[in-house]
Write a protein that binds this DNA or RNA. Structure first.
Lengths: 131, 131
DNA sequence: TTTCTTGCAAAACATTTGCAAATCG
DNA sequence: CGATTTGCAAATGTTTTGCAAGAAA
């Protein structure tokens, strides 16, 4: 059943970039990082690999509301916070108090599979610079 | 200070469509609705008007992770839930228990201005059809 | 007139797709 | 060999932009 992983050079390199990235890179960021490492894969291949890695459960795709998808090598259940000033994206590990999802199921009649929260605010460094 | 509202025919018609829409229309949906009402505005004008209405605080723009932005005439604080099967988007009025945002501020050091949660699941009708 | 708004077309951007060539098993 | 993956380029979908023409103040 569990078809085995086929990590080509492209996929492995991209996985490594996402995994070791602190800043939730977009596909374009990954292209840059590849170039820095002396690789040059086609855009199509990058998207293809990201999809493969996402489907394989090795990384997660984040759609945070800015135009481009970001990718996250951190698999544990968590949410994200975006700085409105500098655009930085950080992880949020505090989970919402439990009864919420149940309440929402009762309110909406949906069977909930998943939920993701995006916080927006001002990050510590931008606060320090007086904004 | 509060510059006064300039509602042209285009803006007013689009506002009316968003306000009276139950299904969080995208720009393309709005184009369709306009056509049904016998209007035909340029795409640029539709986006321009949506931006104006959003900035004026009359509607809200939703970026829920699917490709196109949706627009919502419901201004009260609420979240959204998307059916994974049929793509329908519904409102969620149950709010997360209060201490969460504070906890996140303490965890991240951010000053939080806003947060939006997107639930995914299966809507009542799709459940009924046995999925 | 001066300012704002529209319409249209082109550009920009992120992503997907089709297909031939290369690679893997 | 057959199956999968890559590279490239073209196509797609969404949104923005530039600019001339039109409407409003």
């Amino acid at each position: 059943m569990s078809s085995k992983l086929n990590l080509t050079v492209q996929r492995e390199t991209i996985y490594d970039i996402v995994k070791n990235s602190i800043n939730h890179p977009t596909a374009a960021d990954i292209m840059d990082a590849l170039r820095e490492r002396g690789h040059q894969f086609a855009y199509g291949t990058v998207y293809n690999s990201l999809k493969y890695l996402t489907d394989a459960g090795l990384i997660r795709e984040l759609k945070l509301g800015d135009s481009a998808s970001r990718y996250d090598g951190q698999l544990s259940d968590h949410n994200h916070i975006i700085c409105r000033v500098c655009g930085r994206v950080d992880e949020v590990f505090a989970t919402p108090p439990d009864p919420w999802a149940g309440t929402v199921e009762r309110e909406t009649g949906y069977k909930i599979q998943n939920h993701q929260t995006v916080f927006t605010g001002i990050c510590p460094s931008c606060q320090a610079e007086g904004r």
